[in-house]
């Protein structure tokens, strides 16, 4: 049995209500009748039962909960991800949190209500609908979906009440809006989500847009930037001895307990690998550097502190310079320790 759709246009409310009453008598199910108008008429005005609606409440509630979740994430969780105390305030102080919670809850409720509206109405309508533009000029349209037989009687009812115009078409041309709108919104949500994620490419510097960021082009010259300027020749800094014509300017650090401890540590790190832990030239590298001298000999103890200092600093023969590894004071610590080695050995 083929379904048909009929649309009758009426220019006044009285005729419309009469038609509706007659249709009801014809046992046309309520859900098959739609009344369209350019101004809202309550069902009561039309003499119809209120249409069953999806209630708004669940949507609004869902919106409220969603907003609350976002707000709590912002006021409770994010401050704890990187806890920074400012102005003596706790991480989640109540008054500011209340503001954020309020705003997000309100926003969630509004968004939830709006989404509820869209879903209940199955917007956007992506199928052909029975409609006539004259409805927005004030005509009231009554659309009825009925089978062949009933359709004839509906047409009669329309005619009886002086319908301004009647359109009668095969219902197959007007499919019921199924879940296509859901697919539409899902697609839109995915696109929206992607659009939201796109900035992450920037914030994570995956895409680096060159921007005139003055902080990057600092006019200052960093520790390792730019050509290094040589130290002024012959000048003597205050913080340590410097070799002038092979002669140290000041005396070495005193061989204090602290200095020896530091010296030992440094010696074990830098020297022991060849010269051995006790200075006996039995370090693990001696097979490659058999000429590494024993440090407890008279020859070494006969050297001036300064000479040992220079050897460590400048290197000698196959021994590399340790200038890069040791500061001046550290070198003196090692010199002290090397001296102490002999005493310890005795």
């Amino acid at each position: 049995m083929a379904q048909e759709v009929l649309l009758g246009l009426f220019d006044n409310l009285e005729a419309t209500t009469a038609v509706l009453r007659d249709l009801e008598r014809q046992n046309i199910p309520d859900r098959n009748i739609e009344v369209m108008s350019n101004v809202p008429y309550a069902p009561k005005v039309l003499g119809r039962r209120p249409t069953r609606q999806w209630p708004f409440l669940p949507f609004v509630l869902a919106g409220v909960l969603g907003g609350l979740a976002i707000a709590l994430f912002i006021v409770v969780i994010t401050p704890r991800l990187y806890p920074i105390i400012v102005g003596g305030q706790p991480l989640t102080p109540f008054p500011p949190s209340a503001i954020i919670v309020f705003e997000f809850v309100a926003l969630g409720a509004m968004a939830g209500g709006f989404i509820g509206f869209l879903l209940q109405n199955r917007y956007p309508v992506l199928v052909r609908q029975m409609y006539d533009p004259r409805i927005s000029e004030g005509y009231i349209g009554v659309a009825v979906r009925a089978d062949d037989q009933a359709a004839d009687s509906v047409a009669d009812i329309f005619a009886a009440h002086n319908a301004h115009d009647v359109v009668r078409e095969d219902a197959a041309r007007y499919p019921v809006q199924s879940r296509r709108f859901l697919a539409f919104w899902a697609g839109l949500a995915v696109v929206g989500l992607l659009a939201l994620l796109a900035p992450l490419l920037l914030t994570y510097n995956i895409i680096d847009i060159p921007w005139f960021n003055q902080m990057r082009e600092s006019p200052s010259i960093g520790f390792q930037e730019g050509p290094r300027r040589a130290a002024p020749a012959e000048s003597i800094p205050i913080q340590g001895p410097v070799l002038i014509n092979g002669q140290p300017a000041t005396e070495p650090l005193p061989a204090s307990e602290e200095s020896l401890q530091r010296g030992q540590l440094l010696y074990e790190v830098n020297c022991a690998i060849c010269h051995g832990m006790q200075g006996n030239a039995d370090g693990s590298m001696t097979k490659y550097f058999p000429e590494a001298p024993v440090l407890t000999t008279d020859r070494v103890s006969g050297m001036a502190d300064q000479e040992i200092f220079m050897i460590i600093t400048l290197g000698r023969n196959r021994m590399p310079s340790l200038a890069e590894n040791l500061t001046v004071n550290e070198t003196w610590d090692v010199v002290n320790y090397v001296r102490a080695l002999r005493e310890a050995g005795q």
């Binding site: 739609e34 009344v35 369209m36 108008s37 350019n38 809202p40 008429y41 309550a42 069902p43 039309l46 119809r48 209120p50 249409t51 609606q53 708004f56 609004v60 503001i99 309020f102 705003e103 309100a106 926003l107 409720a109 509004m110 209500g113 709006f114 509820g116 509206f117 869209l118 209940q120 109405n121 917007y123 956007p124 309508v125 992506l126 609908q129 409609y131 409805i135 927005s136 349209g141």
Partner: peptide, 30 residues
């Protein structure tokens, strides 16, 4: 979005407008 002015559309529109009105006033004050 395919609005035709059916009575259910109108009544939902009414409800939504009321919901939004009630919420947006405190938001406006805030």
């Amino acid at each position: 979005l395919g609005f035709r002015g059916t009575e259910s559309e109108w009544s939902r529109l009414e409800t939504l407008s009321n919901i939004l009105s009630y919420i947006i006033i405190p938001v406006m004050f805030s």
